[in-house]
C-alpha cells in the first residue's frame, strides 16, 4: 500500500528536480529519439554516459532507478531471447533446433541496451517530477491542440484527479478489507473462483465509496465555480528560468551529437 501511496516521485532538491516539467518531458522524448538514432557501440556508450550524468545530477539513489526496471524485466528477457535465436547470420553456437548467430548476439545485446536505457531514462523524469507538475507541464505543452478542439485542460484535470485519488482509494481498500476481515471474511485461501467471489465484499463498498467521493468532489468544484479551462489562471504558472534554457541548449547539443553518430555510422 505504501508504495502506491508514495508513487514513483523521489523527493530531493537537485537541479533536475528544480527544472521545469516541460523541459524534462521534452528531454525524455529527445533521449528516447536519440536511442533510436544511434546504432553503434560508441553511440550507446555516449547515451549511457549521458544517462549516468543525469542520474548523478538527480541525486536519486541508483537502486530506485533499478527498481523501475522490475516491471519490464520479463519483456526485456523475452526480447533478448528472440533476437538471440531468430536473427539470421553466421552461426556461432548450434544445438538441437536452436542456432545462435553472431548477428543475433550483437542484436540481442543492442536491443537489451536500448530497452534498458529507454526505461531508465524515462524513469528519471517520473522520479524527479511530481505527478501534478507533470500533468501541468503536459497541459501547457499540448495546449496547441486546443485549435483542433481537443479538451486539453479537461484531460489534464482528469489525469490530476485520477493521480490524486490513487492513494485515497488504496487507503479506502485497506480500510474496507480490514472491516470485512473483522467480520470473518477470508481473502487468502481457496481456489480462483472462491477468491474472486471473496472480492465482492471488498469491491462493492469500494465502488460505492468511489462514486460518493466523485460526487462530493464534483459538488465542491461547482461550489468554487469551476467551469473548465477557458480563462482559468494558475496559482503557480509555469515559467522558464535561466536553467531551463540552459537545459534546452544541452539537450540540443546532445541530440546534435547523436545525429552525427547516426549520420556517420560511427
Amino acid at each position: 500500500m505504501g508504495e502506491i501511496a508514495l508513487g514513483q516521485y523521489y523527493p530531493s532538491n537537485s537541479i533536475l528536480h528544480k527544472l521545469d516539467p516541460r523541459v524534462k518531458f521534452i528531454g525524455t522524448i529527445v533521449y528516447i529519439v536519440s536511442l533510436f538514432l544511434v546504432n553503434t557501440w560508441i553511440g550507446y556508450l555516449f547515451c549511457a554516459g549521458f544517462l549516468i550524468v543525469m542520474v548523478i545530477l538527480s541525486r536519486v539513489p541508483f537502486h530506485f532507478i533499478l527498481k523501475s526496471m522490475k516491471p519490464v524485466f520479463f519483456i526485456l528477457v523475452i526480447t533478448m531471447l528472440f533476437n538471440l535465436f531468430l536473427t539470421p547470420g553466421e552461426p556461432v553456437v548450434k544445438f538441437w533446433i536452436f542456432t545462435i548467430s553472431d548477428q543475433g548476439i550483437s542484436m540481442a545485446v543492442r536491443m537489451g541496451a536500448r530497452l534498458t536505457l529507454l526505461v531508465m531514462g524515462s524513469s528519471i523524469m517520473t522520479l524527479t517530477t511530481t505527478p501534478n507538475a507533470l500533468t501541468d507541464g503536459m497541459e501547457r505543452l499540448f495546449s496547441f491542440l486546443k485549435v483542433i478542439h481537443v479538451p486539453v485542460h479537461e484531460i489534464s484535470m482528469m489525469m490530476s484527479i485520477a493521480l490524486r485519488f490513487i492513494p485515497i482509494l488504496a487507503e479506502e481498500t485497506d480500510k474496507i478489507k480490514k472491516a470485512q476481515i473483522a467480520r470473518g471474511a477470508d481473502f487468502e485461501t481457496g481456489g480462483l473462483i472462491r477468491r474472486l467471489k471473496s472480492m465482492v465484499p471488498l469491491l462493492v463498498p469500494l465502488f460505492v465509496s468511489a462514486f460518493r467521493r466523485a460526487n462530493d468532489l464534483a459538488m465542491a468544484m461547482e461550489a468554487r465555480c469551476y467551469h473548465g479551462g477557458d480563462g482559468r489562471t494558475q496559482m503557480k504558472p509555469l515559467r522558464y528560468a535561466g536553467r531551463d534554457y540552459a537545459a534546452y541548449a544541452i539537450l540540443a547539443a546532445y541530440l546534435a551529437v547523436c545525429i552525427v553518430f547516426c549520420w556517420r555510422h560511427l
Binding site: A182, R183, G184, A185, V204, P205, V208
Partner: peptide, 29 residues
C-alpha cells in the same frame, strides 16, 4: 475475530449485499 467483534469508524462503508438481512448474515456465514 468472531470472539472479538470490531466495528470500525463509519461502519456503513462496509455494507455490500443486495439486502440488509443478507449483509448481516455475512459474518455468521
Amino acid at each position: 475475530r468472531t470472539h472479538v467483534g470490531l466495528v470500525f469508524q463509519y461502519p456503513e462503508n462496509q455494507l455490500f449485499e443486495s439486502d440488509v438481512l443478507k449483509d448481516v448474515m455475512f459474518g455468521p456465514k
